[in-house]
Write a protein that binds this DNA or RNA. Structure first.
Lengths: 271, 271
DNA sequence: CGGGGGGTTGATGGACATCAACATCTGTGG
DNA sequence: CCACAGATGTTGATGTCCATCAACCCCCCG
């Protein structure tokens, strides 16, 4: 049975048997769909059954205010979250007081998925804005994965994409200068937001402060300011008043050496 | 059934039923054990059955010469490797020719585990020395995980540890200066090697060149040389002729702000 | 009206890169 | 056996990117 599940995952079965569930759930209007659903549908078409399962995972809504940390307690708190609205970042604090933001989560992203499976690292989560998230109990998640392999595949893709982003982040900090790092980050964020309908080719709204950018990119806020100025004055991007506006997308891509291959995974799923 | 497996993983069952297999495999002498076995046994005692399964995963031995890349082709090549002997690094090349090493694998580590589940990132693997690795077919791996939940838990711990190391690496490059970065890396490596019996408290053998260190730490080889000199002259570590020798372990830990918590995960497994 | 969060700009210094030269050691072919 | 090339390591001189320190701005909100 475990092997059968694996075959589903790898081969992305051509004809799974969903008949028994057919019609049990209503098709949703596109505008009703959660960001996660929008994102996953880019990777794989979903049956109504699968959409229903996804929708049921969103049932337990919770809200959190900005700024107050959501530290994931492991052990007792065996739940993950699907971010529905708002922005979050996961970071790690150094003994000397500096912090490094490891990743930024936007609507449609998972939060603490790994912490459900294993109580892992000691990083914290800070809501950047007020957020709404669906709490997903471990049991519900695993049941969903076991019963809808196609959904499981899509979620695995999402997780692997997150990992690829962390690696890309590492490369950026290690081997790109400040300008390229900033450009790369703004472009990556744009691609991610576009996937959930929160960005156009011209730009997007972005609640991050320059301090956030500094902690993401491994710079100081002062230098972030200068970098942003230079990008603005050279006519490539403007970051101002919570809005990122691309003026010369192509030149920006060139500066950042941005290759979105690791984001637009076109793999087995689409077979 | 899926939920039962999950309970095993989280609760680390107190009395799983192994009777039907008891005695099917011979107990191995400690010196016979593979590095992976040694590592996993730190996290959880293994029954003879589990040791047998582990041993069977090591059957398909393959060797590779140093320097010639093991690029993981995804798709067709649905296999992972357990590194038995030698050192490997996984890296990512930039368009401008610089490279960033994401991680170093030592005996007992998995190679391309994620690539089995999903064809992920585009990083490559370079054997640093001549290596021996056991090829693990996807099917065998999943079967082993499904049949021996305690082993599955242990492997999940290993994977999560790898992820935590990448995050720690990111933080280091973003927020530590060259000296601390180097000290941290050498200490981390020491801890990892000690877990598979390849390091003592006084030091360990290390085939990395200063160029490798540079690509790992996001520095230039020239600067790596200076940093090493300074660490040597201040009496903390010597890196020379393929040997890392700790002279003042405590002071090094202090300089690196090295907190091995993320390596020595003492969690549910030990309950 | 005061205070705080965010942003902007200048002056200065330090950490690290870059360039360049040279030392060792290994292997290789004449 | 020697000459030579290539990989690795070592050290100095110089420059640059970015951090640090220090003002000062605007705007919002109590």
């Amino acid at each position: 049975m475990q092997e059968a599940l694996y075959d589903e995952l790898i081969e992305s079965s051509t004809g799974a048997d969903f008949d028994s569930f057919a019609g049990a759930e209503r098709a949703m209007n596109v505008t009703d769909q959660s960001p996660l659903t929008r994102k996953l549908m880019v990777f794989a078409a979903m049956s109504e059954t699968e959409l229903g399962v996804l929708e049921r995972l969103h049932r337990r809504r919770r809200s959190f205010v900005a700024g107050q940390d959501l530290v994931h307690q492991g052990q007792t708190e065996q739940a993950a979250y699907i971010l529905a609205k708002g922005w979050v970042c996961s970071y790690k604090l150094q003994p000397d007081g500096t912090r490094q933001i490891v990743d930024v989560q936007i609507p449609g992203d998972f939060l603490g998925l790994r912490s459900v499976l294993l109580r892992t690292s000691d990083h914290s989560f800070e809501p950047i804005t007020e957020i709404e998230a669906a709490e997903v109990l471990a049991g519900d998640l695993l049941e969903a994965l076991a019963n809808t392999p196609r959904l499981a595949t899509a979620i695995l893709w999402a997780v692997s994409r997150d990992e690829a982003m962390v690696v890309e982040h590492l490369v950026g900090i290690g081997r790109r200068d400040a300008d390229a790092r900033m450009a790369h980050f703004l472009l990556e964020l744009g691609s991610r937001l576009a996937l959930v309908g929160m960005a156009g080719k011209d730009g997007y709204d972005c609640p991050l402060t320059q301090y956030h950018l500094a902690d993401i990119l491994g710079l100081t806020a002062v230098h972030v300011n200068r970098v942003l100025r230079q990008l603005r004055e050279s006519g490539m991007v403007t970051f101002r008043d919570g809005r990122v506006a691309f003026h010369d997308h192509d030149r920006l891509v060139e500066l950042a050496e941005f290759d979105p291959a690791y984001l637009d995974q076109t793999g087995p799923l689409l077979k």
